[in-house]
Design a binder for these strands. Structure first.
Lengths: 323, 323
DNA sequence: AAGATTGCTGACATCGTTGTCCATCGGGGA
DNA sequence: TCCCCGATGGACAACGATGTCAGCAATCTT
């Protein structure tokens, strides 16, 4: 009898014990499918992401799993080749998976079609670091523009003027947000952000290496490079080493994210710390709270922080603040 | 009517079309719970692992997901704090998740209680890189001993004799297997593997840093260190840098796995390539084949390969082959 | 042309829970 | 002592698919 297992009232202890004994004797386990069928609950939560850097995915997943620890929800991982190419398929996939809810990582968290279709399909969602339509669903919010402004200002304050930029995947709203943050810092310092010194690296190590190579092979080589995430920054460092440059003296490199690689490489990478883990935890907790009908906040704000390490120094030809 | 959706024979085209139109009109989607209930299939596959290095998990997951791409199975990730402490709970967890099958990563793939209970619970499993009871279930097999022997032999051939060892988590059978491979190489070279130069690093970066620190703070400092995975090797490199040693001249370091970090660090790390991705793909394919009733191999063998890069050179005081 | 055979379709039991409804039992108040 | 009410436990429909079975129509055989 189901009342025993669900700890309902109006059941005597004697019956409780008797049922439990019988269950143990028969090696009984409740059938999850039947429960799900009648309760319309799968207790499955999806995590949708598009192959960004490995460390980002890992932190994201660890955050979600951490938040799910005390709950009876389980995590299904749903990597998507290209969110923009497959927006319709994605929601079909999610519906077919019978999820109770999904955590959306960028760039899915910013995709209007996905958001609209999820709402239409009645699947609850929580969004990690969205930049548009912030009112839709639960979300964890962070100011990419401010973080980017801070790291660019740091390089400018060191005296760099010839600064190359390695942009992330154009499909991520964060790419433009960070670029605009860089731009603000340039304007504040009274100098120009040269468009022909912007290369795209797609947030991957290889992309960063290639973008770095293009920037470093120019006749007018930059003295510093701003990469929009740490993987690409490491790629830039590899490209610099291949060209015999010594780091950080010949080239300053700054990243974004504070992912594990930023602490591993030598010199240690100057970067902007993004609390991906915390954001994943917060998003998951909001999602679960909603699914369980508990009241709670619908948004959480997170701060990023400039971490000045060893990969950024003043350019050779100029002292700090000089130009 | 279900016959239309399952593409069964004996249905006329007219009815097929009529049903499809009605389904579209009503925005009909089959109920996964009801299907699962009557078919006794969840189409969920679990991946059980214990927080080893991040890159290992990522490669593992990517492999499983890759193998699942064409299939209608979905992946549930099940990280376990400590397999040895929670062996009984683990299977309870898996049963509660209504999984069709699980892919077991080390050390769960070598845990007799887990294997026995899975068999008892009727949950199919595929094992990645097991070292014991190889006949149980489907498995992907690799010769850890040979890989370890090769990398140790490489250091010995370079002329190193004072070689420290950073061991992995004692709970992983691979730790002992790799140690015994090292031992074979030492014996073949006619020298002794000093037990007091073995430190444990638990397969983590931090563990590697601490173990490296202990080895490098000795009065009789080793000229080379063998780490049982790349994360620990990087940790050793960080400890060496903190002590002002220059790499690789003052200290040769070799890792194991060929994880992404091994290519990122400077100097690039000598290591043993383990095809984790391929093993995950193979294990998953075998599992799915079994679940689908397709015939197929129950075991796949994989090779590892010594990758000599920049982190290992002859010791200062001796030429190659010298002693 | 009538019976046999095959193709197609609708009806219905089934899977294992949940939750509602109803019958029963026991105790306390009138 | 009788009645009423709350506590308790059993019976049963519902969830939404699947798959079997039986019935009917159409075609083939003789």
């Amino acid at each position: 009898m189901s009342r025993v297992f669900n700890d309902e009232p109006h059941v005597s202890d004697a019956v409780k014990r008797r049922v439990r004994e019988a269950a143990d004797a028969l090696n009984y386990h409740p059938n999850v499918f039947a429960q799900s069928l009648v309760r319309r609950r799968s207790h499955l939560i999806g995590l949708v992401y598009e192959k960004p850097s490995a460390s980002y995915v890992v932190e994201l997943q660890m955050g979600v799993l951490d938040a799910l620890l005390g709950e009876r929800y389980r995590l299904i991982v749903i990597p998507v080749r290209s969110v923009h190419d497959n927006a319709h398929d994605v929601v079909g996939l999610l519906r077919a998976a019978a999820l109770d809810g999904v955590v959306l990582a960028p760039p899915a968290s910013d995709h209007p079609v996905i958001l609209a279709q999820l709402a239409a399909a009645g699947i609850r969602f929580a969004r990690v670091a969205p930049l548009r339509q912030l009112e839709l669903g639960a979300s964890t919010i962070i100011d990419d523009v401010a973080g980017a402004r801070a790291v660019a200002a740091h390089l400018l304050a060191l005296g760099h003027r010839d600064i190359g930029i390695v942009k992330g995947d154009p499909g991520h709203a964060a790419s433009d947000a960070r670029l605009s943050g860089y731009g603000q810092a340039f304007r504040a310092a009274g100098c120009e952000m040269r468009l022909d010194w912007i290369e795209t690296g797609n947030f991957t190590l290889e992309g960063g290496t290639e973008a770095g190579a293009r920037l470093l092979d120019r006749a007018d080589r930059p003295t510093a490079i701003l990469a929009q995430n740490d993987e690409m920054a490491v790629g830039v460092m590899m490209a610099a080493r291949e060209r015999g440059l010594s780091l950080p003296d010949d080239l300053s490199v700054a990243g974004f994210d504070d992912s594990e690689v930023s602490r591993i490489v030598w010199p240690r990478l100057t970067t902007v710390r993004q609390p991906v883990f915390d954001m994943a935890v917060a998003a998951t907790e909001m999602l679960v709270a909603e699914l369980e009908g508990r009241p709670g906040a619908r948004h959480s704000h997170h701060d990023n922080q400039l971490l000045i390490r060893d990969s950024t120094v003043a350019p050779r030809s100029a002292g700090p603040g000089g130009a």
